[in-house]
Nucleic acid binder design. Sequence first.
DNA 1: ATGTATGCAAAACATTTGCACCTGG
DNA 2: CCAGGTGCAAATGTTTTGCATACAT
Lengths: 135, 135
Amino acid sequence: MESNDLKKAGLKVTLPRVKILELLENSDTRHHTAEDIYKALLESGEEVGLATVYRVLTQFEAAALVTRHHFESGQAVFELNHGSHHDHLVCVKCGRVDEFYDETIEQQQKKIAKDKGYLITDHNLILYGTCSTCS
Amino acid sequence: MESNDLKKAGLKVTLPRVKILELLENSDTRHHTAEDIYKALLESGEEVGLATVYRVLTQFEAAALVTRHHFESGQAVFELNHGSHHDHLVCVKCGRVDEFYDETIEQQQKKIAKDKGYLITDHNLILYGTCSTCS
DNA sequence: ATGTATGCAAAACATTTGCACCTGG
DNA sequence: CCAGGTGCAAATGTTTTGCATACAT
C-alpha cells in the first residue's frame, strides 16, 4: 500500500502524492519526465498542477523514493527506487531504456576514486547506442 | 593556429569563432558553460552576444571540436576535444572536474552492450564525490 | 556582391516560487 | 482547527530563434 511508504517518508498522505506514487508503481515504463506524469494524471481525470508534480517528485527524491536522472534530453527523468543500484543503457533511436549492474565496473570505480583522492558519493553511467529492435 | 581547425571543420573564420576557440585552448580549466565563455569574452573586451556563443558551441559540437556534457547542474558544460576519450570525476562541493580513463571499464561496457543486444555509439560515466581538498 | 554570421530582443522551454485557498489529521 | 499542501499565474534560468545589419571570401 502506497500510503504507508508516504508515511514512512514523513509525508502527509495527500491525493496528488498517492496518485503520482501509484502511477510510478503501476506503469510499465520505469522512467518518466515530470510532464509525462502530469499529462497522464490529467488524462485519468485527476486535477493536478504541473508545479505540484515537480514539488512532489522533488520531495520523493529527498525521501529517496525516486531518483532524478539527467539524460541528454535536457529534461529530467524520474525513476522509482527499487533498492538495488543499477546503470542505464539508452537507445538513441527509440528511447528505450534498459538497466544493468556490473560488479567489475563498480569495483573499478572505487579504485579510480581512491587513486584520485575522491570520496565517492554517487555515480552515473549511461551507455548510448541502438537496441536490437532498432539496428 | 586556430583558423586552420575552423577551416578544416568547414566553418568560416570569423572573430567570435576564433576567440571562443582560443579561449577554450588557452584556458587552464577544461570545462566551461556557455555563460562562462560569454562573460570571459566580455571581460577581455570582445563584443559577442550570448546567443552567438551558444550557436558557435553547437557548431563546434557538430564539427566534433568540442563535447557537450550534462552534469547534474542543469547547465550544459563544454569541453575541447583532445582526441583521447576519458570520463569524469566531479567534486560536488567545489565543482572541480578531474578526468580518467580506465581500460577495464571500457572493455566491460562493450561486453554488457553485447549481452543486451545494443550497438554502442557513445557512453557517459561520471563519478560524483568530494575531492581531496574538500573532504 | 552575396551568402553566411552576428547581435539584439523576443520566444521557447524546463523548473521554481509567491500567494490565496483547500485539506488531511 | 491549523499546519501544511495545492493550483494557478507569474518569475526564473537556460537555450533557441527571427530579423535586420555586418562581415568574410
